[in-house]
């Protein structure tokens, strides 16, 4: 199966029409069966099209987006539903701020090739910044069928919390699609400490799209990546494909038999020792 991670670099954000057209070009070039768009894409597009008002800071912009009501978020999701359907692929739209009762969640949605919503995953762990913004934690992990693979979505900082990867692995995940963002200058190590590390200790695939650009005077930079267990990737690096922040998209072909083989040859999960965890793991 061919997968792609998009950086959104070079995609025009001044109108939904331009966004749709540019993204369609990229998706067609990628020829992927599943593609992932970075986090904060609804913020970036909302700001670009004037649907969200820019705050003086990133925090204020997030607050404005969260408070803006559901119209823009629904429109954003509808746009990606159509993109998934029109291009015949699974499309993981970037993140939105989802309001339910008095709570706000950072949420990632995936649409299937028919344009139907196949997964809505809330971020389960929050950064200090996100807690200060009043966001709430999701408490559920959802798996969905992606061309015969068990797939899950990873939102934002959940990539740095190994409990999330392990939870998905224990549920039987074969592939995780991560949509995130890293503040500051480009540094490959936080990424390696995130999804790369989760892949190595759980033996699944991961497709990672991270936002690059500026929102409310805050810069974001990171690489896109398609990650697998070291033993079944070129140079044993754990990377099947890796892009720089300005690479519009990266692609890789996933051979599931390779994954099953490494799980058979080196059964990491079988060597877990839950009896040793019972008292002290989650105090």
């Amino acid at each position: 199966m061919r997968v792609a991670a998009l950086s959104l670099h070079g995609i025009r954000m001044d109108s939904s029409k331009h966004y749709r057209s540019d993204l369609t070009d990229l998706l067609q070039k990628s020829n992927a069966a599943a593609a992932v768009i970075p986090a904060f894409s609804s913020l970036a597009l909302g700001l670009g099209t004037g649907r969200i008002s820019a705050g003086a800071s990133f925090a204020e912009t997030v607050r404005a987006a969260a408070d803006s009501g559901s119209d823009w978020q629904e429109e954003f999701l509808a746009l990606h539903s159509e993109l998934a359907r029109d291009n015949g692929l699974f499309l993981t739209a970037g993140t939105v701020y989802e309001r339910e009762n008095d709570r706000i969640y950072h949420t990632l949605c995936c649409f299937d090739p028919a344009g139907n919503l196949c997964c809505r995953q809330r971020q389960t762990h929050l950064t200090r910044f996100e807690r200060e913004q009043g966001l709430s934690r999701g408490e559920e992990l959802i798996l969905f069928d992606l061309h015969g693979l068990q797939a899950g979505l990873v939102v934002g900082i959940d990539a740095r919390h190994p409990e999330v990867g392990r939870g998905f692995a224990l549920l039987g995940a074969d592939i995780l699609l991560h949509s995130g963002a890293l503040k500051g200058e480009l540094n490959c190590w936080p990424q390696a400490a995130g999804m790369w590390a989760q892949v190595q200790q759980n033996q699944f695939w991961a497709v990672e799209a991270l936002f690059c650009g500026r929102i409310g005077r805050t810069d974001f930079a990171a690489d896109s990546a398609v990650i697998g267990p070291c033993e079944i990737t070129p140079g044993q690096s754990g990377y099947l494909a890796r892009g720089y922040p300005h690479t519009p998209f990266i692609c890789a072909n996933l051979e599931m038999e390779d994954l099953y083989r490494i799980r058979r040859d080196y059964p990491l999960l079988k060597m877990l020792n839950p009896q040793a965890y019972r008292e002290d793991l989650f105090v």
Partner: peptide, 15 residues
């Protein structure tokens, strides 16, 4: 810590 967090309900459910 800038990004560490804990989610007890999640852990009880999945771990």
């Amino acid at each position: 810590h800038p990004w560490r967090d804990s989610n007890k309900a999640f852990y009880e459910r999945y771990l």
